[in-house]
């Protein structure tokens, strides 16, 4: 995790080209995304806002390779995700993407440190090196040293989200995909998490895509994208 000054480059890291996605619910087909075009520059902090059911989580899942578009293409650093097979997509995800969820999704039976270690188990690293990286990631997100062995149920919501963020960044991914990261936190803890994401974007040049309902949270991003009825309604730079 090398620190560089965040400067959104002109060449987009992620490019969506006429991406469509629909679901069948009952006998009805619901068009969630309809020929969406979007370019996300490297180093950007982008907030995605939309009413419920407007496809923002679907878009996040497509960006993370958890789902595939019905039509269109998603290019990540020039690589079309739809061209990758399941194994290659899994490897790509492990290398390039870190997920942060609203409900943290930490494994309750593991300590904070063990949770952060999970992505590192996929790499051929020794135990000492894994411990070093876990400690560095937890330190970076401001997680207290004396709580590394605590289980998620013994931590506050804000601390759990810090652990989740540490888990997302411990492999030094290119992009962080955050699904309502402050949605389950009070305002103070939410602000701290947003400060942390801003910090990660600025100091570590992480490209961040954050889905949020909260305008206050969206204002902390550089770019705001509004989705409306499966279409990109608005793209604008924020005041941040």
């Amino acid at each position: 995790m090398t620190e560089t000054a965040a400067q959104p480059s002109s060449e987009p890291l992620i490019r969506l080209e006429r991406v469509s996605k629909s679901y069948r619910r009952g006998g009805e087909t619901i068009q969630v995304l309809d020929r969406v075009d979007l370019a996300i520059p490297r180093g950007d902090f982008l907030a995605l806002m939309a009413p419920s059911g407007s496809g923002k989580s679907t878009l996040l899942n497509l960006l993370g390779g958890l789902d595939r578009p019905d039509e269109g293409s998603i290019l990540f650093d020039g690589v079309a995700l739809e061209s990758l097979g399941p194994r290659a997509l899994t490897r790509w995800r492990a290398t390039h993407v870190g997920f942060v969820f609203q409900l943290y999704h930490l494994l309750p039976v593991l300590s904070a440190a063990r949770n952060v270690e999970l992505p590192l188990l996929l790499q051929r690293l020794g135990r000492a090196e894994r411990s070093r990286r876990v400690a560095a990631a937890l330190s970076l997100v401001g997680f207290p040293d004396d709580r590394h062995t605590f289980r998620p149920t013994e931590l506050s919501g804000g601390q759990q989200q810090r652990v989740a963020i540490a888990r997302a960044i411990v492999t030094n991914p290119t992009v962080l995909l955050c699904d309502e990261p402050t949605g389950d936190l009070d305002r103070r803890a939410g602000d701290e998490i947003l400060d942390l994401l801003v910090e990660l974007n600025r100091r570590l040049d992480k490209t961040i895509v954050m889905v949020t309902h909260d305008p206050h949270a969206a204002e902390r991003a550089h770019t705001l994208v509004r989705l409306e009825k499966g279409l990109v309604g608005e793209i604008r730079a924020t005041s941040s």
């Binding site: 899994t90 995800r93 492990a94 997920f99 969820f101 999970l118």
Partner: peptide, 16 residues
């Protein structure tokens, strides 16, 4: 199920 889904997001394939 949700934990397995989380592990999939972390890069764990179905085989693993």
């Amino acid at each position: 199920t949700a934990e397995f889904a989380v592990l999939r997001t972390l890069g764990y394939g179905p085989g693993r």
